[in-house]
Every structure is written in structure tokens, then in C-alpha cells.
Design a protein around this nucleic acid. Structure first.
Length: 414
RNA sequence: GUGGCUGUAGCUCAGUUGGUUAGAGCACCAGAUUGUGGAUCUGGGGGUCGGGGGUUCAAUUCCCCUCAGCCACCCCA
């Protein structure tokens, strides 16, 4: 354990930053609720197979990014790298496949063993929505609309564009893979080393490459959209029409692919230029095959996840929290009486901070520092006649208020 | 995992061609002001110069290793 440092890629979220996180999560949660999403929480730990079976043996997450370890009983356990597999598992574990369709909202920490960068930590947080049991593209339209709605509510829409693509169904993708591999093999000599291994494992991801040689090759490559079968074409058209009808602007990006094996049809990413290389802020797609892969019944599903840290970096400072009322005993005598008053006000719904150390000037300083809206001063003489001196901290005005009407008097400062 | 940049007080940063007790601003604490905050003035605390090793009479400064952050790749939220 070297020094007093947090583990690499993890960090403490101090109150100021926590407010931003909270704002992102609460906004997402509240708007998702309006769309009928119910919050669930699944364990941070899952058996490793939950992820390795579903994300694909060739995905980066499984091959190099999983926080996996053996527990005391010898089981292989993994800190969840994403939400979807856990939610799907929960649906099967709880027999919820009987109750489709389901709409879930989920939030919490995720873990990926990556090299940290700004906007990319080993422990990070996501908010996540999943729709299970709906095969129609309207489900995709709805979750994309929800995503756009949340980003708008967070005030970050102008910095973000929606990119959209289709991966087609299995048949379309198999057909395309053949054509693509043939084409790429012809240009093998111009591909980067990275892309040569991609060619073996997951040729679609060559489209992601930033290598110039790769890009040149990819520019002339056949497109998946040209290999779509009728059903896939129809699905994608319906999705695009649905988005247009909903007034959601998007940019078709035929090169947009997904790193995880379970995706099909819809693939989308809300991205920003403002965060450097970590531009994806909310992304997802359709995963019709996942539940079956996990051993459950074939179940169509679609969903997305959004990065809380990334969004927290984009938003303006959230509205300031309520300004408290400071209760200040004068001298050391009235502490108990003052505390009684503070408790009364707290029960009445006021945010109350009490200062009782140092001389009066010190206590006032403290009241000022916590940005108190008003200070309730309680000295021996005030308490003796059941009254308080209330000071408006903005105007400096003071008034003598009977304790009986304190709540009424302070109501203006809520 | 690969390549590069950076690391001095809580924060932002000075500093040293290697040389006594490493500085500033902000923040913090105390006093001026023991029944009144915000301004001002005065004083104070706080540093293993990221960590370890090496070279040297002497290292914050030069060299090596290591840790962390940042940038790009990889990948993704």
C-alpha cells in the first residue's frame, strides 16, 4: 500500500463535485420516471460468467478490462464493468421474464481496468436504462428521446450530437462480415497491426480506427447498410422515421460500431468535442440476443448508459442549495436553550446550523461563511423573555421576535 | 497494454548554472473587535520539494527506478 493514495483510477468525490453528480443522476432519474422507468439496483459483484458469456470473448472489456478475482470460496467474481448484463441476469434470476415488457432505470459505480485519463476512471458512475421485451423500433425511439430529453434538461444539448447507425440482425451481419473480410484481406498490407488483429477477431471494429492507413482502406470499404436484409432495412427505416417524427436530430454514421458482442440493429452515441478523446457521453443500442445467450428465453431488448463523471464535467454549476438559518447562542449560558430552538426549527423544515464555539464575532463569522440567510441570536436576556434577535444576513437588519412566532417570521427566508 | 508530458503548502504557482532556516497570493487559525459577520491591518500554523536509490563535501536542482495525474493510441460512459 504505497502512501495515502486512493487506488489508481479511483478518486474521492468531495461535496462540491458530489452536488454535480447528484444533479446529473437526479435529473436522469426524474425524467426516466416520467417515461415509466422504475429504478432497480443490482449487485456490484457478479459471477464472472455473467459478463464473459455475454460481452463476447473478443471484446476489450472481457480481454483486458475486467476487475476479476477469486473470492474465499474459489468462485471467480467480477466488479461489474457495465450495467446491462447484471440487469438481464436479475430479470432471469427473479423470474421477471414472465412480466415483460419491463422498463428499468439503474445507477451506480462501474469498474474497468483501463489506463486512467480525464473522463476515464477505473471506477466511474453510470446511469442506465433498459427496455426488455419490446421488439418494435418505437422502443429505441423512446429511449433515444429520453436520452435527448435528459441532456436537454442538463443544459448540454448544444455541445452534443447524436450519431446513429444500424448493425442489422445476425443474418445481415454475417453476410456483411464475409464481404468486408474479403475486401479487407485484399488490402491487408495497408492495415495497421492493430487492425490486423481486429481482422481476425472483430473486423467491424476496424471502422473505429484512427490510423490513417486504416482510414484510407475503410473509406473504400463496402458498407453494412448495403448488406441489410429486408427486415433489418425496415427496422432501421422505422427507427429513423420515428426519430424524425419526434423532432430528434441525428447524424448517420455508417462507421459507428459497438465494442460489445450483444448489440444488433440500433447503435447510437451522443458525443461531445468538449472532453477530448473521451467524447461519448450517452450511448447504447439494441441487444436482442443477450438474454438468450445468458440461458433465458429469447427476449428483445434495448437500452443505453450515460457517464455521470463526463456529464458532470459538462454541466453548469447546479443551483445553490437552500441557505441555512444559523442559530447562535450568545455567551456560554444559553447553549441548551439555543439547541432547543434549533431543533424546533429543524422539525419545522428549516435547514439549521448552530455555532457555539469562539466569541460572538467568531460565531457570526461562521454564520456568514456557511452563507446563512438569517441568524437567530439567543442571549440570556432574549431567552428570559422568550424572544430571539433575528438578523437578516443580507441586509443586516435585526428584529426582536417572540419565540412563539419564530417559524412564521423565518418563513420569508426559506 | 504502448508512446509522450508533468509532479514544490489545502489551491494556483515562483525558486535553484547543485550551497545556510524553500517563498508568494488565495485559503486556514488567532488578535485588533470577550452582544454582532462580509472590509482592513497584524501575527501564526502548515512542506519527508510525489516515493526510493545513486553521484557529490553538499541534491528540491543532476542520473536511474518507481508511483500518480494529464495527453494521444487502444477502447469506451
Amino acid at each position: 500500500m504505497p502512501a495515502l493514495q486512493p487506488v489508481r483510477g479511483t478518486r474521492d468525490i468531495l461535496p462540491e463535485e458530489m452536488l454535480r453528480h447528484r444533479h446529473v443522476e437526479q435529473t436522469a432519474f426524474e425524467i426516466a420516471a416520467r417515461y415509466g422507468f422504475a429504478e432497480i439496483s443490482t449487485p456490484i459483484l457478479e459471477f464472472t460468467e455473467v459478463f464473459s458469456r455475454t460481452l463476447g470473448d473478443t471484446s476489450d472489456i472481457v480481454t483486458k478490462e475486467m476487475y476479476a478475482f477469486e473470492d474465499r470460496s474459489g468462485d471467480s467474481i467480477t466488479l461489474r464493468p457495465e450495467c446491462t448484463a447484471g440487469v438481464a441476469r436479475a430479470v432471469l434470476s427473479n423470474g421477471l421474464a414472465q412480466h415483460l415488457p419491463l422498463k428499468f432505470f439503474c445507477r451506480g459505480p462501474m469498474f474497468r481496468y483501463e489506463r486512467p485519463q480525464k473522463g476515464r476512471q477505473r471506477q466511474f458512475h453510470q446511469v442506465d436504462v433498459e427496455v426488455l421485451g419490446v421488439a418494435q423500433p418505437m422502443a429505441d425511439v423512446e429511449i433515444i428521446a429520453l436520452g435527448a430529453h435528459i441532456l436537454e434538461a442538463l443544459g448540454v444539448s448544444e455541445k452534443i450530437t447524436l450519431e446513429l447507425n444500424t448493425l442489422g440482425d445476425g443474418e445481415s451481419r454475417d453476410a456483411y462480415r464475409k464481404i468486408l473480410v474479403e475486401y479487407l484481406a485484399e488490402h491487408r498490407d495497408r492495415l495497421s497491426d492493430d487492425s490486423l488483429t481486429r481482422l481476425e477477431r472483430n473486423p467491424l471494429r476496424i471502422f473505429d480506427s484512427k490510423d490513417e492507413g486504416d482510414r484510407a482502406v475503410v473509406a473504400g470499404a463496402p458498407l453494412l447498410t448495403d448488406s441489410l436484409n429486408g427486415a433489418s432495412r425496415e427496422f432501421f427505416d422505422a427507427l429513423c422515421e420515428g426519430l424524425q417524427a419526434a423532432g430528434i436530430a441525428y447524424r448517420l454514421n455508417p462507421h459507428l460500431v459497438r465494442g460489445l458482442d450483444y448489440y444488433c440493429h440500433t447503435a447510437f452515441e451522443f458525443t461531445t468535442e468538449a472532453l477530448g478523446a473521451q467524447g461519448a457521453v450517452l450511448a447504447g443500442g439494441r441487444y436482442d440476443g443477450l438474454m438468450e445467450q445468458m440461458g433465458g428465453p429469447p427476449t428483445p431488448a434495448t437500452g443505453w448508459a450515460a457517464g455521470v463523471e463526463r456529464l458532470a464535467m459538462l454541466i453548469e454549476d447546479p443551483a445553490p442549495t437552500v441557505r441555512p438559518i444559523a442559530v447562535v447562542p450568545v455567551g456560554d449560558g444559553p447553549h441548551h436553550g439555543a439547541f432547543g430552538v434549533a431543533q424546533r426549527l429543524r422539525r419545522a423544515g428549516f435547514a439549521v446550523e448552530m455555532g457555539f464555539s469562539g466569541n460572538l464575532a467568531k460565531r457570526m463569522k461562521r454564520a456568514n461563511k456557511i452563507n446563512a440567510r438569517a441568524t437567530v441570536l439567543l442571549g440570556e436576556d432574549e431567552l428570559a423573555r422568550d424572544a430571539a434577535t433575528v438578523r437578516d444576513m443580507d441586509t443586516g437588519e435585526q428584529s426582536d421576535v417572540p419565540l412563539a412566532s419564530l417559524e412564521t417570521h423565518l418563513a420569508r427566508y426559506r
